[in-house]
């Protein structure tokens, strides 16, 4: 039933159903390219075969570059405070926390605790108490060794490296999940667990002047490269078809301008169902 639900959600997301603003599985978070000749941010994404046999191999990487509007990072003071989610990972006496994940955004946290059970707590502390609607979120996690390679991970929340089904959380409540990380026969012992929390709550209505994303300006361009194939975009959604394996992403500015941006990416099979998408590796930060 969960698989059916996940596939339904992905179908809705991919094909632009009831949540058209969320088309992708993963987000790079906010990145900043500095001004100057030669500047490039350089990333690596690995697409793998899905552990769900009915999904199978990766066919292509779907990618979208989005320029951020710097002036919109802080909402105008006359608007309602944002809906926030916070996440805390704990294991024994260790803990790691991220706070203030605003509606429509996501953030990553990790905790280095070796093999064993980790507890992930999600709460709404900091949210405007007048907001009565439950907040929506989804979670993806991966247990990794010291080199960043996947080890074994299990949770009732979702399978490792698969976006969870949509969850809801009433304001003032806390949700808890257990993630069990263990040794993998190939990659060895777990070093840490990485979690991405997507706050899928519909953002509150904002004034037109404070949209969080600019229209395409051509200030930035991105190239997706894999094998002997490459594609360029200045903002349009692109697919690069090269199967399972490593995909590199470069973001630069044709005008050598400084710019804040993020990008959305997911590995998909030939029917546009999500396969395994690795966490983003940043190779160069300019």
């Amino acid at each position: 039933m969960r698989k059916i639900t996940q596939k339904l959600i992905w179908s809705l997301l991919v094909f632009g159903g009831s949540l058209p603003q969320i088309v992708f599985g993963l987000d790079s978070d906010t990145q900043t390219l500095t001004a100057g000749t030669g500047a490039v941010d350089f990333f690596e994404i690995t697409c793998s075969k899905s552990s769900d046999k009915s999904v199978g191999d990766t066919d292509h990487l779907n990618f979208k570059l989005i320029e951020n509007n710097a002036s919109s990072q802080t909402p105008p003071p006359d608007q309602t405070p944002p809906q926030l989610l916070n996440a805390t990972l704990t294991r024994l006496k260790l803990s790691s926390k991220i706070t203030n994940i605003t509606a429509g955004t996501n953030n990553n946290l990790s905790l280095k605790g070796g093999n064993g059970a980790y507890t992930l707590s999600v709460d709404t502390v900091g949210t405007n108490s007048t907001i009565k609607t439950a907040q929506k979120y989804a979670i993806q996690y991966q247990c990794v060794n010291a080199a960043g390679n996947a080890t074994n991970g299990a949770s009732t929340l979702t399978k490792q490296n698969i976006l969870s089904a949509a969850k809801t959380l009433a304001n003032g409540k806390t949700a808890k999940y257990v993630i069990n990380c263990s040794k993998n026969s190939t990659s060895g012992n777990t070093d840490s667990v990485k979690v991405t929390l997507f706050n899928n709550t519909a953002p509150l209505a904002v004034l037109p002047s404070s949209n969080t994303e600019n229209a395409v300006t051509g200030t930035l361009s991105a190239q997706v490269v894999s094998g002997i194939k490459a594609k360029n975009t200045i903002g349009a959604n692109i697919d690069l078809q090269n199967g399972n394996g490593m995909y590199n992403v470069m973001v630069s500015s044709p005008t050598n301008a400084a710019k804040s941006y993020h990008f959305e990416y997911t590995c998909l099979n030939s029917a546009n169902a999500p396969t395994q998408t690795s966490l983003l590796k940043k190779l160069q930060d300019n």
């Binding site: 000749t37 490039v40 190239q223 630069s252």
Partner: peptide, 16 residues
Amino acid sequence: IISAQIFKDFQAKNIT
């Protein structure tokens, strides 16, 4: 504007 990106190993440079 024509741009080229040169990359090798873990480094990349842009020229425009």
